[in-house]
C-alpha cells in the first residue's frame, strides 16, 4: 500500500484516498510545435525501474493535485511537493541523491539538472 503525504493538508493519505495522475513535469507542446515534439508529448512516457516522478490528486480529501517522487521498485517515497512547479525542488532531489546516488529521470539527475536539458 502506497502512502503519500498530501503537501496541502498534511494528511498521510493511503492509495485508496488518492487518484493517480500519470507522469509529472511533462512539457506541453501544442500548436506551432513539430509533429515529433507533439508525438513525444502525447505518447512518450518514462517507465523507470527506480526513481520516478508522478502526479497524484488527493481525490477523497482536499481535492488538490500534487507531485510525488518515489521508487517504482521498492515503493519507497522520497517526498511529495505542491503541483505549482515545473521541476522537482532541490530538497527532494537531495533526498533522492542521498538514497539513490547517480539517479536520473528525464532531464533531472543526481541533484543537478544536466546541461542537456
Amino acid at each position: 500500500m502506497l502512502i503519500l503525504e498530501c503537501p496541502y493538508c498534511g494528511v498521510k493519505a493511503e492509495e485508496t484516498e488518492l487518484a493517480a495522475g500519470g507522469e509529472a513535469h511533462l512539457k506541453r507542446y501544442g500548436p506551432g510545435s513539430s509533429d515529433d515534439e507533439f508525438h513525444d508529448y502525447l505518447f512518450m512516457r518514462e517507465n523507470p525501474k527506480g526513481v520516478h516522478f508522478e502526479r497524484w490528486r488527493h481525490a477523497n480529501g482536499c481535492g488538490k493535485w500534487f507531485h510525488a517522487a518515489r521508487c517504482t521498485m521498492t515503493l519507497e517515497v522520497f517526498g511529495t511537493y505542491p503541483a505549482q512547479t515545473t521541476e522537482p525542488p532541490q530538497e527532494i532531489c537531495d533526498k533522492i541523491t542521498a538514497k539513490r546516488p547517480g539517479w536520473s529521470w528525464r532531464e533531472f539527475s543526481d541533484g543537478r539538472k544536466s546541461s542537456a536539458a
Binding site: 496541502y8 493538508c9 480529501g61 482536499c62 481535492g63 488538490k64
Partner: peptide
C-alpha cells in the same frame, strides 16, 4: 467552520 482544503 470546517477546513475543507487550502481554499475552501
Amino acid at each position: 467552520v470546517a477546513w475543507m482544503s487550502p481554499d475552501e
